[in-house]
Design a protein around this nucleic acid. Sequence first.
DNA 1: TATTTGTACTTGTAATTACAAGTTGGAAAT
DNA 2: ATTTCCAACTTGTAATTACAAGTACAAATA
Lengths: 246, 246
Amino acid sequence: MFALNITEMSPGKIPQYRQLYETLRRHIVDGLYRENDLLPSENELCKLHNLTRPTVRKALDLLSNEGFIKRHQGLGSVVHKLPKGIGILSISGTTTAIGKENLETRTIIKPSLTSWPDSFPFSLSDHEKEVGCMHFSRLRLVNGKPVIYDISYIPNINLPRFSARNLDNKSLFNILRSAYRIEVKGGEQYIKAINAPDPDICRILDIKPDTPVLHLQRRIDTNRLNFYLYSILYCNTSDHSLYGIF
Amino acid sequence: MFALNITEMSPGKIPQYRQLYETLRRHIVDGLYRENDLLPSENELCKLHNLTRPTVRKALDLLSNEGFIKRHQGLGSVVHKLPKGIGILSISGTTTAIGKENLETRTIIKPSLTSWPDSFPFSLSDHEKEVGCMHFSRLRLVNGKPVIYDISYIPNINLPRFSARNLDNKSLFNILRSAYRIEVKGGEQYIKAINAPDPDICRILDIKPDTPVLHLQRRIDTNRLNFYLYSILYCNTSDHSLYGIF
DNA sequence: TATTTGTACTTGTAATTACAAGTTGGAAAT
DNA sequence: ATTTCCAACTTGTAATTACAAGTACAAATA
């Protein structure tokens, strides 16, 4: 009761429900809880972490929304089987969803300042058009094989030294958060199946021409008003399905 | 304060936060609120509907999670642009852009009792294997053109007269809810891009062989413990992308 | 005029209390 | 031995209160 933890003092503190969520999530993905195990009941979690039920329930809501647990009235919160695919369909990120498999990220196009592409799948504001964008692309490999080619466009607000950063094997989101205080909140995406569109992408993904690939167009929300990240992805799903909950 | 509405009396009542969610959602898709409009503030909604802030916030949480609004601290809840694609990636997706008039559902394989397919993408419990399954398939058309072919498998619990039901132009979920009190809660899905796998499906979707299609494998949760619906979908995304938020 | 400050809003987080509703398992009755 | 019932859990819904933090705008200040 009288002990203040670090987060209660610091200005950029993480909410308590968020901390509990992270803790439980880590316990689940680390295998501390296994499939069909019951989590401690809400009241037990309250006592364990010195929180109240609404706060605990907010953490469990997050876990439930992301498919880590399933709650049953009268029974408890049941741990869900961990997904086998790539969890790119939800915000949690590629890195966590791949699991223990070897994930690698390589920069293909280094960050540079350009104007927006002629044909862009999302409508841009006048301000976005005016300032142009930071453009770069990365390739994600699972066990050494190319799986996702991610082409990114970020409106050119002031991001000092961004083009000098090494994006290999790092999460873009983490860099944005730690270096620029930009928090990624979610977004919208359009998905279709296409044949690999051009020889460049075939070469990058190491696939034959006319192999079917998933095509994703995403607009990603941030904590800054009217500041979005844009991303176009090509996924070779022959070995790895994309996984999502709904 | 003293007026009891219908839901407070009835046994199968709908929670108040759910009712408010439905109301606001309808207002948004009907165009009462337009893109970038501000919803009434939480306190205003409290007064308007005689609710308290936690209840109102639960309704807004739902809208936010489903991408209908975006909330900004200090500003308010901003109505999001309605999606252009087919909102099949989430459980309560909209097909607003297409419009109800232009949506049609045809039964291709009529419901019948069979055993499970030899190769099934999800692992089945002993009980599920034992009872076999109800099997049927439907085709969704937009403006008369086939877009989604949906092959469904439902474990054969006692569903009286199910095979006699007409699934055309009706929501399977509505039938399950009203006739059998089975509520659909969400689920998990695996997505990949493939070439149209066999002549039957090419014919049904009216596409040429080797056209790339989206392949979805879904397991759908219900309010009954250990009772899942299974669905395999083939989507021709050449004219309509699938839409989702994350 | 340009800048700063403050105020009145907005949503975000959190504790507290109360009861409803579903599940489980053991005690009591048959 | 079997069934019924109840008590003790579980999660679900809801009201209430309080303060923190972000935004917008107008007033005061430089």
